[in-house]
């Protein structure tokens, strides 16, 4: 299947970005829609989807997975992110791994969003400035999950780290190579339309395996602070959906009408009005004929 090509692109994009980021002591990037940057869009209820981490030990002669350490960073990420976003005036709910795995429907939804996010974030990482024109959208996968969680927005986070051993660092000095790094990225996905509202990333260089193993919270604090440096503080006066009509793509629904009211309304319309169809499809020839 062609997931491999996506996989390759994703890997190349991630690697390229991270190598670039890791070459600096600390670096960050932030990209937002104009509405989010101006404070016209501020989610009141955000949920963090369980972050996914990939951690490697970079030795002089080989590279090894650090799976347990990845779990440590994933666990630390939620607490750190909630703490740092709270300092900026946001409330963040953390969706735990246990909550997800206890509910088969929720698990399927989270898996679907993760699949969609990882497939489509590749383009966003190539042209992050296009977030300004709302080019990136995670579709129904984001909308159904946000509704299930009763969230205005979802945060999807990815963590990548590589701890360079002493031998690798020596080799890096001699012939070049990685000195280790840790990086985090966060996508803020609007719950009502699935748009990528904002994307923040941050990285720090010179990372050892021991640090990743023993100090996951400190590592996460550092990279999260770097990533969130320019995350706009919450403006209490800015209300959810304020000024959204400026964006023609965004539907403003009359939330006053409950589901039951809408359904009753439709039942009544069927009873009162004739069976005339609002529009009829045009007659079209079978596709085989057209293609000939």
């Amino acid at each position: 299947m062609s997931n491999s090509s996506r996989c390759g692109n994703f890997a190349r994009a991630v690697t390229g970005l991270l190598v670039l980021l890791a070459s600096l002591p600390a670096s960050a990037g932030e990209f937002m829609t104009p509405e989010f940057a101006r404070g016209e869009y501020r989610p009141m209820s955000m949920v963090l989807i369980p972050p996914l981490a990939e951690v490697m030990k970079d030795k002089a002669t080989t590279t090894e997975s650090m799976v347990a350490e990845a779990a440590g960073l994933e666990d630390a990420a939620g607490l750190v992110l909630r703490e740092q976003l709270r300092a900026k005036g946001y409330e963040l709910r953390i969706l735990s791994v246990d909550q997800v795995n206890a509910d088969p429907v929720l698990r399927q939804m989270v898996r679907s969003l993760n699949e969609r996010y990882d497939a489509d974030i590749v383009q966003a990482m190539k042209k992050p400035k296009d977030i300004r024109i709302r080019r990136y959208n995670f579709g129904d996968e984001a909308k159904v999950l946000a509704a299930r969680l009763d969230a205005d927005a979802l945060i999807v986070s990815r963590i990548t780290a590589s701890g360079a051993t002493g031998g690798q660092k020596t080799m890096a000095v001699l012939i070049g190579g990685s000195m280790g790094y840790a990086a985090v990225s966060m996508g803020l996905v609007a719950g009502d339309n699935g748009d990528l509202e904002a994307f923040f990333d941050g990285a720090v260089g010179n990372m050892s395996p021991e640090k990743l193993e023993r100090e996951p919270k400190e590592v996460m604090s550092k990279i999260t602070a770097t990533a969130l440096k320019k995350f706009p503080a919450h403006d209490a006066a800015a209300k959810y959906k304020k000024s959204w009509p400026q964006n023609s793509d965004r539907k403003v629904q009359d939330q006053a009408a409950s589901d039951d009211e809408v359904l009753m309304d439709l039942e009544a319309l069927f009873e009162e009005t004739p069976e005339a169809r609002v529009a009829e499809p045009e007659e079209v020839a079978p596709v085989e004929e057209q293609m000939d």
């Binding site: 299947m1 491999s4 996989c7 890997a11 590279t63 090894e64 997975s65 699949e115």
Partner: peptide, 17 residues
């Protein structure tokens, strides 16, 4: 064939798997 998820999972060490 590996997909993106596999990469995220850390299955990148070709020699291991």
């Amino acid at each position: 064939m590996m997909n993106c998820k596999s990469i995220v999972l850390g299955l990148g060490v070709a020699s291991l798997f």
